[in-house]
């Protein structure tokens, strides 16, 4: 076992059930509200807070800067990094930059295509993919980069970073085998933890966890907080690999508007409680409703 490089790393290594949160940087420079939410509802309650990287390809403030602001406020960040916007030079450079700013947890993602976002005319990059990005981190840790000198020898870094490297998986997709094959590669490439795409079906999740038992990697089950029945239906229609069961949608439609946050916290908390025995943690994606996190944790019995 390598020496833990972050609080998240240490907690998972110690076998604790770990909860992580998530914030999305604002579109603009007004970071105040976002930081306030993180300080008021996430700090001290979750082990670390993911910061999304130009989520859904909608241009916004960068993940690395927000991670640094979280660090300054005593909140441990998980730096999300997508392959959509930077080539291998920029990705490696940003990894070194993140490290010198004190960022240790990095989550490697492919990234939603630019066609999904608000700059569909942009040129997508995808020079690396999530597997090769993880491998790149491992390479940087070993003291070299992806390049080489004129003799073909790997370049040497003057000072190497050390990360706690994470990746994502979609457990409840209709064609799960290719996902598992890719997850195996991610772990082989150096992934040390997994945060999943949203899961609402504990039975399906248990089945998935059995299929990846051999990987021996801590898995944090992803929960996107359901804010309304409409949102749940939208996710079923539009978000790949996410299926919100009908009873949950009914529960949300039955809730009076002023009670929605309470019901949302009950559902998310119950899901965490149900899946707790199957995995090593939960990743809560609140999409701006950070104030429901204390309620979720209470309902989950954490």
């Amino acid at each position: 076992m390598t020496e833990p490089v972050s609080h998240l790393h240490r907690a998972l290594a110690a076998g604790q059930f770990v909860v992580t949160g998530e914030i999305g940087p604002p579109k603009g420079t007004n970071v105040g509200p976002c930081l306030h939410e993180a300080e008021a509802y996430l700090k001290g309650r979750v082990a670390a807070v993911n910061v999304t990287d130009i989520q859904t390809a909608v241009m916004r403030t960068g993940s690395m800067a927000m991670c640094k602001l979280l660090l300054e406020r005593g909140i441990e960040p998980v730096f999300q990094m997508v392959c959509r916007d930077r080539n291998r030079l920029a990705l490696q450079s940003d990894l070194l930059s993140a490290y010198i700013l004190g960022i240790r947890n990095v989550l490697a993602l492919t990234g939603d295509h630019v066609a999904m976002g608000d700059h569909p005319e942009a040129k997508p990059v995808y020079d690396l993919d999530s597997v090769s990005l993880l491998e790149t981190m491992t390479r940087l840790e070993s003291g070299s980069d992806l390049g080489h000198d004129f003799k073909g020898n790997p370049n040497t870094l003057d000072g190497a970073p050390k990360f706690f490297k994470g990746c994502c998986v979609t457990p409840c997709t209709d064609e799960v085998e290719p996902q598992i094959l890719k997850l195996e590669k991610k772990v082989a490439a150096g992934a040390q933890f997994v945060q999943t795409q949203a899961v609402y079906d504990p039975v399906a999740f248990e089945k998935f966890m059995k299929l990846i038992e051999h990987l021996k990697v801590p898995v944090l089950v992803g929960i996107v907080v359901l804010k309304s029945a409409g949102m749940a239906k939208y996710m079923n229609r539009a978000v790949p690999g996410v299926q919100v069961p009908e009873p949950l949608i009914k529960e949300l439609s039955a809730a009076p508007k002023e009670n929605l946050k309470k019901v949302a916290a009950e559902i998310a908390g119950r899901l965490v409680r149900q899946m707790k025995p199957m995995c090593q943690g939960a990743h809560l994606m609140t999409l701006g409703w950070d104030d429901v996190v204390p309620g979720i944790l209470a309902n989950a019995g954490l």
Partner: peptide, 20 residues
């Protein structure tokens, strides 16, 4: 592949269709 991925699918394909 719209993302030119070399190591497997992204999480974005639906019912075997491309995310975009």
């Amino acid at each position: 592949c719209a993302k030119r991925l070399l190591n497997g699918p992204c999480g974005g394909s639906t019912e075997e269709c491309c995310e975009i």
